[in-house]
Every structure is written in C-alpha cells, then in structure tokens.
Amino acid sequence: MTENTAQTDLQLDNFEEKVANDQRIEPKDWMPDAFRKTVLRQMSQHAHSEVIGMQPEGNWITRAPTLYRKVVLLAKIQDEGGHGLYLYSAAETLGCSREEMVQALHDGKAKYASIFNYPSLTWADIGMIGWLVDGAAIVNQVSLQRTSYGPYSRAMIRICKEESFHQRQGYEATMVLARGSAEQKAMAQDALNRWWWPSLMMFGPHDSDSAHSGQSMKWKLKRESNDVLRQRFVDQTVPQAEFIGLKIPDKNLKWNEERGQYDFGTINWDEFMQVVSGNGPCNRQRLQHHIQAQQDGQWVRDAMHAYELKRQTREVA
C-alpha cells in the first residue's frame, strides 16, 4: 500500500464517520470525488430550477389581475431569483463557477426541474405554481434541511422559510378563484388538472427506478426516498383541494384506512421521460430564453468590466 492510498483510506474513514454521525461535510473537508460531483449536480440543478422557474411565472407579471397580485408575484419571482443566486454561491464552494454551471445548462449537460417545461396559460396557473409546485418543492426541501453537505443544508433552511410563504400565497390565490365566479372556478380546476400530475413527477422516478437515489441515501445527501416524499405531498394536498372545492384529477385517488394514506393512480412515466429528455412543451423555449437573455446582456457585462478596468487603472495612476 502506498502512502497516498493510505492517506485516502484514512480520509475516507473520516468522511464516512462524519456522515454516519450526522455531521455536516463542509467545503474544506476532504470528500470523495463522486460525492463532490453528486452534490454539485444536485445543487446546480436546484439553482437552475429557481432561475428557469422565473419564466413561467414571469409570463404573468404584466397581466396580473390586480396591483396587489402584481407586487406579490414580482416579489415572489424575485425571491426565486435570490434562491438561485444563493444556491449558485453555495455550489461554488465545490470548486465550480457560476459561469461554468450556466454553460453546462446551455449545453444541455445540466438539468432543471422538469415542471417548468409546462406552459403557464391562465392566471390560475400562477396560483397553482405556488400551491402545488412550491408545495412539492417544500416537501423535498424540508427533508433536505438535513442533507449532509453543510452549505446545501443551510441554504435549504433559509429557502424553506420563503417557500412556505409562496406556497400559502399560491393556495390563497387559488382559493379566491375557487370561490369566485363559475368561470374563475373552472379556470382553477383546469389549472389543477394540468399541474397535478407534473407536480407528482417532481419527486422523480419510483425508488426502484431512481438512478442516483441509492448512493445519495447512503451519503445522507438524500434523507428520504422519492416515493415517501411524493406520498407525503399527496396526503397533505388532497385535503387542501377538498377544502376549496377543487377535484384532484385522479379517479383512483382514495383514502386507504389501513395505510392511513391516500392511494393514488399511476403516473404517466412516458410523459415524464419525454419532458426530462428535453421534449416537453416548453423545454426548447425555456433554454432559448435563458441563452438569449445571456447573449443580449453580453455588451452590458463587457461595458461593466471595461469600466471597472479603467477605474482601477485611474486609481493606480
């Protein structure tokens, strides 16, 4: 055994002991390359999701029905962008720059939450994104507050606070529609019909089919399985729908007394795979929009850097 491998073995033991004792792995700690790669993939994907998620919601800023709804929506999207910034910074602790992460997104190497590849067609979709999409995200993120990578865990604690506010305002906006005119109620029901199943897909494939789950659970990056989290989301959301008189679009949905949980129908995994692989309704549009904004802003960023250089030169002189 060489000295180097002996050292690595020791480091690996230390790492595993920390994970086993529920201690956080911090940026300066030694970590296996595969762990670093996995956290980076997950965090950059999360950051991209926050930023791409600004698009379907941003689609309704100029058409928000009241000034109050407009400022709430703007502030919410601003929060999401802020989460993106925070997560990019946290992910940079793993030795990858934001520019590199964004490039990977543009090259199609990094993903973002597939849910944002569906179009926001009516005002009710904005409520639905808050209620269901942020609702599903919170279930996942509450679990991730205990993830083993320190910066990610702390980001989740902070982000969850804002997300739960978003979820409540989305539900409240939906409630107003559900209790409004027949047309408004139909608008809300239609939005629920379209967003329900994609929301369930947000938790990823079944545990038995999930490519990354096993190792991530072992590393305590992931604390609970896809199916457990999905079930929790269904159980908390069904009564909320009932309370405001909307119907979950699943004829197989029913309370299972024995399990103390809801049984629900089969997710269309073909659709899931289509969207994940880039062929959803808005995949191309979302990516193109992000690339376009980046290109349009190039001359602004160039000007900023040129000015900064001149300023520094002047200070030296």
């Binding site: 600004m54 941003g58 400022v71 703007l74 910034l85 802003g297």
Partner: peptide
C-alpha cells in the same frame, strides 16, 4: 417589470425588479 427574467445578469434582474416594485 418587463425586465424580470430578461436582465443582463441575475443580480441586475433582481435589482430592476426591486425598482419596479
């Protein structure tokens, strides 16, 4: 508010949104 999600970089996107608000 039309700049939201269209800014030249993320920080500026958020700042323009702030001013809009």
């Amino acid at each position: 508010s039309e700049w939201c999600r269209n800014g030249p970089f993320l920080e500026e996107d958020l700042a323009l949104t702030n001013v809009s608000l």
